[in-house]
Every structure is written in structure tokens, then in C-alpha cells.
Write a protein that binds this DNA or RNA. Structure first.
Length: 561
RNA sequence: UGGGGCGUCGCCAAGCGGUAAGGCACUGGGUUUUGAUCCCAGCAUUCGUAGGUUCGAAUCCUGCCGCCCCAGCCA
């Protein structure tokens, strides 16, 4: 069961608004992605916030595509975004909107602004406009076109819309204040001309496209949004958001509130960078299991609940931070520890022969699917004379801290017998190729009399095991702050060269041959795994490692054990 | 150097003038046929900093310091 969401400053604002009787007691939010890339875990923070608030206050949350820049957008992204929001567990019902739905109304409001003397057509080109804008320290200068008559502006805007001018030839600008210390208020562009692009929703119906700063407040108002939540970098845009709504005849005035965006260690969360990784071959694509995209996390094996829980834990504030990967990892571990069936898989196989177990014999052992949850049932695991164990579970000699198999020592085979290592077989190079052992037949389901066997290791029957592949993922970048780059470097310089390790000689217990791509498993003593969704058709299974188990032994072993 | 924000434990984060929640991490100890899980205990005399107001300040005021954002016809 998911824990309740702790309060934060945005919820407090909404509670106050409700108490003050604002918006007739309505709460209406929206999640407004631009369809120019795949959603990532930073978007999840916004989705969980917006849909979560709607639910908490018996309100509604719209899904709206902010599709005002057709150059960067396409239908693949429109589709993937809907899939990802649904997968995360949210439902916008019939409230799917596009900013492009409002192109006509946006246009009409622009005419309203022109008629009120609050917008004008400007002929300055990009370079000139930059020069006129001034700098952070110096005020800008007014455009020579700023004083055009309302009639001329109306005519010119109509001709812009009719396609009489080329890209970049003219724009429509708001007439605000070229000396404002807030750059966004120095007569911002409202409309630009874009010929020759086919908009994924409106086709070639328009050749003028409204800018974000103009479109967003209008779209919010037309949808009756009460609280428009966005990230911190738009804080400076709020005066413009309010200016637009104060100067046109919209039915309401939503409140924009900003919160800090998510930064996660060892990864990047900017669409520009993720696009580069996906398109320039640094990873397999948007859904590469190492990507922080929802598509990547899904393929990696993360559950929607774990991502929601992560969003709950990191909270909502205005201070920017860098969240440790451990927080996310712990969320998926907690979910999967409770829900993932246990299985056995050997990833670095070492053959082990049980000499006092008859060659012809084999038996079916019963093992619980979960050590604590009996309702998850049991399974059968075949056992025979030859099995595989992991190479890391045997040492010829070791100190007493090492609890696994050593020459002459005993260890328990998980769900099976206690065995003793009688001899080690090596090849000409001195490499260990086989272990000769004996088993104690009285130790099935009970401890041996008069001695203690401390170690437990996992195994797979050599005769019955299924061979296959395992992909081990590590952090995508080797720097906690993946964005920080030396002078002249690129963020891709920080990529971790060992973020993917493929093991092709793995053995899985037979049950795993029937694994499905929608069920995560715990490979006991190793971690959590899922069948790869894209390789599911292969004759040999391919498993992705979602996350390792916590491993306190690794610290002891390295620390001088 | 203009404007807008932000600074509470290693990382998130409560706190809203009455004497520092919680989570993650970490450190001990216990249980355990996963070195997992689970359990129990510990973990900020102090809230960027220096002053001020007050019986009382992380919370109010002032100065200073540090970090983030803004000069797209991107969002």
C-alpha cells in the first residue's frame, strides 16, 4: 500500500485557496509536456505532483501537449507520452488536449491585443532584435516599429497569417517595457512565421505559430486550470503569464506556482541531452535500460509504484538539489522485496559434482517462492549429481569471515542439501574447472546434527538448467553530477564505459524458461531481474538486472576481510 | 554589475516566534537455509554567516557570503 503524500508548500497554497473560497472550491491542474522527446523521471515528478494534487483535492488533471513548435515535435513522442503517463498509473479520462486546439482562439486574442494597442508587428530580424533588447545591465531600446498604428498592425498580422511573408521576416510582439529589469518583459515575441513544416496535429493549416509564453497562460485559462505548476526556470516568466491574462478576455486567471526540477546523480535529465544520447548512438535508444526515461526504466524492470514512491520521498520544494541514486534504488528494492518471486540463477558458472549422489538419480525439490509470503506459493526445482554454482562462492582458502565454500569446508545449497568440498580440479593453466563434493543426505529441510553450517549458496542443476544471457547495468555516467564538464569538454565525456556488462554463459532454474516480460524476479543472493522486453522472442532468455541486493559482504571483503 | 529564486545532518526534507519530525545513507547489536529481508539501538546543543528585535529566533529585521535561473523568432 502506498504511503500518504506528505504536505508541501504547493499543497498548503491550495489548502489556503480552498479555505478562502477561491475558484469555487475547484482544483484543476494539468501536465503539459512538449512532444519533442520521451518522458523521463523528472517528468514523473511533475506527473505525480499534478495528478496527485487533483486526486487529493477531488479535482481533475488534464494531459495537454504543448505543441507550438512543430519543428521539434512528432507523433511518436505524442504516443509515447500517453503510454508512459498511463503506465505510471494516471488517467486523464477524456481530457486530452493540445495547445494547437487553441490556435484559432490564440489568434483571436492576439487580434484583441493589437486592437488594444498592446501588441505590434515588428520587422527587426533576429540579430537586430537582440541588439535592441539590451543586456542584463542596460535597458533595451524600443523597436522603430513599435509605434505602428493599430490598423497597420492588424493588416500586417493578417498578412503574416495569410503567408505573405517569409520565415523570420516579421513577428508579433507584446508592447510591454523595453527597460524592464526582467528580460521577459522587454516586448517578448508572441508569434513567429514557420513555413514548410507539417504540424502533427494541424498539418499545414497555419504558418504562424504562437510562443510558449503566450500560449501557456491562454491554454490554462481556456481549460479552467486553477493552479498551473511548473519548474523554477519559469519564475521570471510569471509576470508575463499574468500580463497576458490581464490583457485579454479570458474567463479566469490561473495561478502559476514554481517548484524545483529533479536532478539525479549519475544521469542527465535534460531532453536535449537525452535526445543526443538516444540519437547519436551512445545508448540503444530512448528505451535503453540505462536511460532515466520512463521507457528505459520500464524496460529495466522498474515498477510504476516504485517510481511514484520515489517522487513521494524526494518531496516538492523550491531549493535545487541533487538526489542520490540510492533513493531510487531503495524504492525499487522495497517494492520487489515484497512482491518478486524468488528464483535461482548462476551467472559465473563453476561445475560442481556431488560424488556420493548417484549419476542416474535426480529429484524434484520444493522451494517457496517467497521467504515470508506463503500466499506466493511454492515451486519445484530439479536436483542432480552435477550442478553449477557461482565462482565467487568458492575459494580454495579464506579466513573465517568468508562464509561460503572452501576446500574441505561445508556449505548449504539453498533449498537443498549441505555439501562438503572434497577436491578441486584444475586445468593445465591452474584454473579451477570443477569441484568434487559430497552431500549429507540428512540435511534436506533440516540442519545437520552437532555442527553449524553458516553459509548458503545458490545453484542450478547442470542437467536441467536453462542457459541464457544476463545484462548487468551500472550508472550511465561516472560522475555524480553528470552535467559538470571541464573546460572545452562535453557531457558525454562523463559517460561510464562500463555501464553495460553482458554475461552470456548463465544458467537459470527451469521455471525461468517460462518467465514473462511483465514479472520481476529476485535471483537469490544476486538481485532483481526481468526478462528483457525487446529480446523476449529469443530461444535463450535474456534478463536485465534491475538492481542488486544490498551487499554488506562487499564492504567487508574489500575493507580487509 | 540589473532582475528573480534558494541556503536546516553525507543526500532529500519537515518546521510558519515557544526551545530541531521523517526518509535514504551510515554505525553498532539480534533473528535468518538469501552476507537479503526483518527487528532494536545510535546518528544536528544547532539551522550559510555576522549583528539586531524578543522573556524566548531555524522561524521576524539588517548587512554579508555562497549557489541556481534570465539577454531564443525553444519550452
Amino acid at each position: 500500500m502506498e504511503k500518504s503524500t506528505p504536505s508541501h508548500f504547493i499543497r498548503q497554497i491550495i489548502e489556503q485557496d480552498l479555505q478562502a473560497g477561491k475558484n469555487d472550491g475547484r482544483v484543476h491542474t494539468r501536465f503539459p509536456p512538449e512532444p519533442n522527446g520521451y518522458l523521463h523521471i523528472g517528468h514523473a515528478k511533475s506527473i505525480v505532483l499534478n495528478f496527485g494534487i487533483a486526486k487529493a483535492f477531488q479535482g481533475q488533471c488534464n494531459l495537454r501537449f504543448d505543441d507550438t513548435n512543430p519543428h521539434k515535435e512528432n507523433i511518436e513522442f505524442v504516443d509515447s507520452i500517453q503510454e508512459d503517463v498511463r503506465w505510471l498509473g494516471y488517467d486523464w479520462q477524456d481530457r486530452l488536449y493540445y495547445a494547437s486546439d487553441y490556435f484559432q482562439q490564440l489568434h483571436d486574442f492576439a487580434v484583441e491585443l493589437i486592437m488594444a494597442g498592446k501588441a505590434y508587428v515588428c520587422d527587426l530580424d533576429g540579430e537586430q532584435m537582440r541588439a535592441y533588447r539590451g543586456t542584463l545591465n542596460e535597458p533595451g531600446r524600443e523597436s522603430p516599429y513599435r509605434s505602428r498604428s493599430m490598423e497597420e498592425n492588424l493588416d500586417l498580422f493578417a498578412r503574416m497569417k495569410a503567408g505573405e511573408f517569409a520565415d523570420g521576416e516579421r513577428v508579433l510582439r507584446a508592447k510591454i517595457d523595453m527597460a524592464s529589469p526582467n528580460m521577459n518583459l522587454r516586448d517578448p515575441t508572441l508569434y513567429r512565421i514557420r513555413h514548410g513544416v507539417i504540424h502533427h496535429q494541424t498539418g499545414e493549416a497555419w504558418c504562424i505559430y504562437p510562443m510558449y509564453d503566450y500560449t501557456h497562460p491562454v491554454s490554462d485559462a481556456l481549460e479552467g486550470i486553477t493552479h498551473s505548476l511548473c519548474t523554477l526556470e519559469f519564475e521570471d516568466h510569471r509576470p508575463l503569464y499574468d500580463w497576458v491574462l490581464d490583457n485579454i478576455s479570458v474567463p479566469c486567471h490561473p495561478q502559476q506556482i514554481e517548484f524545483s526540477r529533479l536532478n539525479l546523480e549519475y544521469t542527465v535529465l535534460s531532453k536535449r541531452k537525452l535526445t543526443q544520447l538516444a540519437e547519436e548512438g551512445f545508448v540503444e535508444g530512448w528505451n535503453d535500460p540505462r536511460m532515466p526515461t520512463l521507457a528505459g526504466l520500464r524496460r529495466r524492470g522498474f515498477t510504476p509504484a516504485s517510481i511514484r514512491e520515489f517522487c513521494r520521498r524526494i518531496g516538492i520544494t523550491k531549493s535545487d538539489g541533487l538526489v542520490e541514486m540510492g533513493v531510487l534504488e531503495n524504492c525499487i528494492r522495497e517494492d520487489l522485496d515484497a512482491h518478486a518471486p524468488r528464483r535461482m540463477a548462476v551467472m559465473h558458472p563453476l561445475k560442481l559434482v556431488i560424488e556420493n549422489y548417484p549419476e542416474a538419480r535426480s529429484e524434484s525439490l520444493t522451494a517457496p517462492n517467497h521467504p515470508k509470503d506463503e500466499t506466493m506459493g511454492q515451486r519445484q526445482i530439479p536436483f542432480c549429481r552435477e550442478i553449477y554454482i557461482d565462482r565467487a562462492d568458492f575459494r580454495e582458502q579464506a579466513n573465517k569471515k568468508y562464509k561460503r565454500l572452501v576446500t574441505g569446508g561445508e556449505v548449504r545449497l539453498r533449498n537443498a542439501y549441505v555439501i562438503k568440498c572434497e577436491a578441486v580440479v584444475k586445468n593445465n593453466q591452474g584454473e579451477i574447472i570443477e569441484l568434487r563434493c559430497s552431500h549429507d543426505p540428512d540435511t534436506l529441510g533440516r540442519n545437520p546434527q552437532g555442527r553449524k553450517v553458516r553459509g548458503v549458496i545458490h545453484w542450478v542443476s547442470a542437467r536441467h538448467g536453462v542457459k541464457g544471457e544476463v545484462r548487468l547495468y551500472d550508472r550511465l555516467f561516472s560522475r555524480a553530477n553528470a552535467d559538470s564538464v571541464e573546460e572545452g569538454g562535453r557531457f558525454t565525456d562523463n559517460l561510464n564505459p562500463d555501464s553495460l556488462r553482458t554475461l552470456t554463459d548463465c544458467y537459470f532454474e527451469p521455471m525461468l524458461a517460462e518467465a514473462d516480460t511483465d514479472e520481476q524476479y529476485q535471483f537469490e543472493r544476486e538481485g532483481y531481474f526481468i526478462l528483457d522486453g525487446l529480446e523476449a522472442g529469443r530461444e535463450q532468455p535474456v534478463f536485465n538486472r534491475i538492481v542488486t541486493l544490498r551487499d554488506s559482504w562487499a564492504k567487508i571483503d574489500q575493507g580487509g576481510g
